[in-house]
Computed example of a mutant assay.
Amino acid sequence: MLKPAIDRRLIIACNHLPIRVKRGTSGWEFEWDDDALVAQAKEGIPNDPPLDILFVGSLPVDIDPDDQDMIAADLKRLYRCCPVYLDHDLKEKYYKGFCKQQLWPLFHYILPVSPSSCGRFNADLWQAYVRANKIVEESASDSDFVWIHDYHLLVLPSLLRKRFNRIRAGVFLHCPFPSSEIFRTFPKREELLRSLLNADLIGFHTFDYARHFLSCCSRMLGLEHETSRGSITLDYYGRTVGIKIMPTGVNPQRYLDGFAWNEFKWRRGLGTAEVTNPPRSTGREVLELHRAVAALVEAINTKYAKPSAKYLPVHYLERHVPLHERMAFYSVADCAVVTATRDGMNLVPYEYV
């Protein structure tokens, strides 16, 4: 029986490809990252009729220009991933500079309080952000569906719409969307709002985040939304833009399977497992917080540890914790405490329950 031809392509555009990378004895080694959120998003996409899914994003390492074409071909063949290569300076300004020092604080209600604070607008970093989005945009064609993930690619919808007027695109924000009082402090607020409106569908975690976005559109662009039978839409230059509230869940079967793994043994008397993923951003505030947490853990363990009983009250894990190890923690824990000041896409509560 002949397989049906695949004539539709979905591009999942993200900052980092769902690929793990390490340096081996004979060069770079790659493997699929099942824990990556964009990888899990693929599981909910219907495949009838067949759909060609291509991930487009950057790699966490710098690849030598002489190896880039070969690695790109291998990743596309093995994992349906198309890497975009940003030079080191551009990557630093785009990701560590603009994304982490300006957009992330803005979306999490952290405003600069002094000239040395992170979050103060920098035109050079903004230009780097636009250039990086432009490089991602070059991978699309006018017949594609494009699913854009998170705040790293917020100007991508405008770039796509300018190049392909009829392209179909959606955006899903993994993070909160701030109130208009906060968002209006950002100098490029209108550019970001108009770019989001150049998508066909915009997804938010909660109604509050969607409401903040709609309020920004009303107060800054003079655009009012309409509601009908539970749907929320905006008219933008003759196009209907849908607004959806789409709280993210987890794949139940995947997590049930995780509890069957028994390769870990735990010390008797485990008190608290403090899991702290390494920060993706840098800066004075990050270093100060790191030192403060480490000092607090050391103080607690120094005071309450019982070496004779091999008891340590706080096990401080400052590293990425893969799914199977998290499953082991969840299976023995009496409670899970999530301490984010303002949460974005955090699946720990779903996993633990």
Score class of each variant (00 low, 15 high):
A13N: 01
Y311A: 09
I135F: 04
N198A: 05
A36L: 04
T233A: 04
V84S: 13
I300V: 13
Y237K: 14
D67Q: 14
D34E: 13
L221F: 08
E92P: 06
L160M: 06
S180I: 11
P46F: 11
R211I: 04
I167M: 11
L2S: 15
F207R: 09
H205I: 02
R268I: 03
A210E: 00
A295I: 12
K96R: 10
H174P: 00
K76W: 07
E288H: 03
E226Y: 01
F30E: 08
N277G: 04
R267N: 13
P322S: 02
L54P: 06
C216Y: 07
T25L: 10
M345N: 14
K22R: 07
R219L: 15
P83L: 08
F107M: 14
K265V: 05
R189G: 11
Y95G: 07
L312K: 13
F329A: 12
D35S: 07
Q40T: 08
L196A: 10
K134I: 07
F145G: 10
P4C: 00
K42I: 08
L153F: 09
P178W: 05
G27S: 02
Y129I: 15
N15L: 14
V321I: 11
Y85N: 02
A294M: 14
P176T: 00
I243T: 00
D7K: 15
C81P: 01
I11D: 05
M246T: 08
D235Y: 01
A292M: 13
K303Q: 15
A5T: 10
L156M: 11
H149C: 11
L196G: 06
G258Y: 03
P18Q: 01
F213V: 09
T25V: 07
S58Y: 14
R342C: 12
E137K: 13
R168W: 09
Q68P: 06
A273V: 03
A72E: 14
H152C: 05
C118V: 13
V171L: 02
Y129S: 15
V171E: 01
G230I: 00
T282R: 06
S143Q: 15
S331N: 10
T341M: 11
R239W: 13
G44D: 07
L196F: 07
A140Q: 03
S116T: 03
P83Q: 12
M220T: 08
N301P: 05
D62L: 00
L59R: 14
R326T: 02
P252Q: 00
R168Y: 12
R161P: 05
N15V: 11
T339A: 13
L221Y: 08
P112S: 05
S218D: 15
D67H: 13
I12Q: 05
D64Q: 04
I12E: 04
E29D: 02
L214Q: 02
K93F: 03
V297H: 12
P115L: 00
P279E: 09
